[in-house]
Design a protein around this nucleic acid. Structure first.
Length: 269
DNA sequence: AACGGAACCTGAAAGC
DNA sequence: TGCTTTCAGGTTCCGT
């Protein structure tokens, strides 16, 4: 599912396909994707507008339009931006279509958890304003992360999933970052030593960068669409040996989410 | 107030 | 073989 690296790749795609170009035609097919307002509102906002910039923060993308408005995009769990020839037929999961530069930029989202949110004056929507630091855009550093974690009293995994702390981390990146940092997902966030916060900071950035390298280029495939192409070290690998120490990877449910970790190199405390 | 769990969805995989 | 059930999880909402 889309987390920071996948959304970053989507933003790069949108920038290449739409940046500086005029939207000649818009069609939003699924009302559920828009929510709160009508699909017509999105169509009226974007129709004929030039895309001035494409910015990503966390798992959100903001398309800035030359008329002053903006369109915000969240991919939910199965959203994807793709480019197609204009004449190519719509797939069953197509929810919106933007004709730009002679090509067709399409939003696919089979499960429809994603959202397209119009902002008439370009002002940030509440979800965007609430986001914490973006590891790539803002950068994160050890001292800040350690302080922020110590102010909370939740399992580390829960803290990492909180978009108001570090924006863009989802279940996969949280799992991978904790493994890289050799930290147990249930360790309490207020009990971290400085050295551990340093490892976690490096783990977050390392995992995001590794995922970006593994997934960039070509059209993106989410791991649950094709499990044979799992680029992650331990996500989705419960019951298999830890790639670092060969102990059996354990899968638990934490905060309602599948959580894989190595009981040997991610000790409970 | 904070926290857990359900709901929202559909396609794929597992179970029978 | 084919139908049914379970699972996946980002975010919001609701009940305790």
């Amino acid at each position: 599912m889309p987390e920071l690296p996948e959304v970053e790749i989507a933003a790069r795609g949108l920038r290449a396909w739409m940046g500086g170009r005029r939207i000649a035609e818009v069609r939003v097919a699924a009302t559920r994707i828009v929510r709160g307002t009508s699909r017509g509102a999105v169509e009226r906002l974007c129709d004929g507008q030039q895309v001035r910039e494409v910015v990503r923060r966390g798992k959100w993308i903001r398309l800035g339009l030359d008329g002053g408005g903006a369109l915000f995009s969240h991919l939910g769990m199965s959203g994807k931006w793709v480019v197609r020839a204009r004449e190519e037929e719509a797939s069953a999961s197509e929810r919106a279509r933007f004709t730009v530069g002679g090509r067709s930029v399409r939003y696919h989202d089979p499960r429809m958890f994603g959202r397209l949110v119009p902002s008439l004056d370009g002002a940030p929507i509440a979800e965007w304003s609430a986001l914490g630091r973006d590891p790539l855009g803002d950068g994160i550093e050890t001292g800040w992360l350690g302080d922020a974690l110590r102010r909370r009293r939740v399992p580390l995994k829960v803290a990492l999933l909180d978009q108001t702390l570090v924006a863009g981390i989802g279940n996969i990146q949280a799992t991978e970052a904790l493994w890289r940092a050799r930290l147990h997902p249930e360790r309490r966030s207020d009990g971290l030593m400085a050295a551990e916060a340093k490892r976690l900071c490096a783990g977050i950035l390392g995992s995001i960068e590794a995922t970006l390298r593994a997934e960039e280029g070509g059209e993106i495939t989410y791991v649950e669409e094709d499990r044979s192409r799992n680029p992650f070290a331990i996500y989705g690998r419960g019951g298999q040996p830890c790639p670092r120490c060969r102990a059996m990877l354990v899968r638990i449910v934490l905060a309602g989410r599948g959580t894989v970790f190595c009981a040997r190199c991610q000790p409970p405390r």
